[in-house]
């Protein structure tokens, strides 16, 4: 596992992104053929996507070449992405949002937000401070948006 991670760290991120983007563009290009190029209005819904997808493919291929041959476009993974601890912070936030998406409709804004904030605060504060801060931040934001600006916020049957 360690060897695999070490190998990934040495990869050219620009090249990987270029490959990914080119594949994405090729898919877009192929998919554009499922929309008619011409129709009774003249040019059809497939016309514009086909040409723009072609432009995307050119951009992707050019990016692959530049990330291989031009120093300023060569980004090695370990140089641009943060170390383990920092990356865990980033992943925690992403996963916390994902969890938030899954539970919000069941729990309502208040509970879901407190849980989300707790997960992030606990990385820097003690558990009781994390709970306290999570409740305070959720309540203040709720008051500003829901009461102050009448913004629609999903609530549970208890109204929060």
């Amino acid at each position: 596992m360690g060897k695999i991670i070490a190998r990934i760290k040495k990869q050219n991120a620009g090249l990987l992104l270029g490959l990914l983007f080119t594949l994405y563009s090729i898919y877009y290009f192929i998919k554009s053929f499922s929309y008619p190029y011409v129709n009774r209005f003249g040019v059809g819904p497939g016309f514009f996507p086909r040409w723009t997808a072609l432009l995307s493919i050119i951009a992707g291929v050019a990016y692959i070449f530049s990330s291989i041959f031009k120093d300023k476009d060569r980004f090695i993974m370990e140089n641009i992405f943060p170390s383990k601890k920092e990356l865990i912070n980033v992943v925690t936030v992403v996963l916390a949002i994902l969890g938030y998406i899954l539970i919000l409709d069941f729990t309502g804004f208040g509970l879901a937000t407190i849980m989300l904030l707790f997960v992030i605060f606990i990385r820097s504060y003690s558990w009781w401070k994390s709970i306290l801060y999570a409740i305070i931040v959720a309540a203040v934001v709720f008051a500003i948006f829901k009461i102050g600006f009448s913004v629609q916020i999903p609530v549970n049957s208890f109204g929060f």
């Binding site: 983007f21 995307s56 990016y63 476009d73």
Partner: peptide
């Protein structure tokens, strides 16, 4: 080139 990639992505 990076600008072009960004533009193409926006188009898609």
């Amino acid at each position: 080139i990076r600008g072009l990639v960004s533009l193409s992505f926006g188009l898609s």
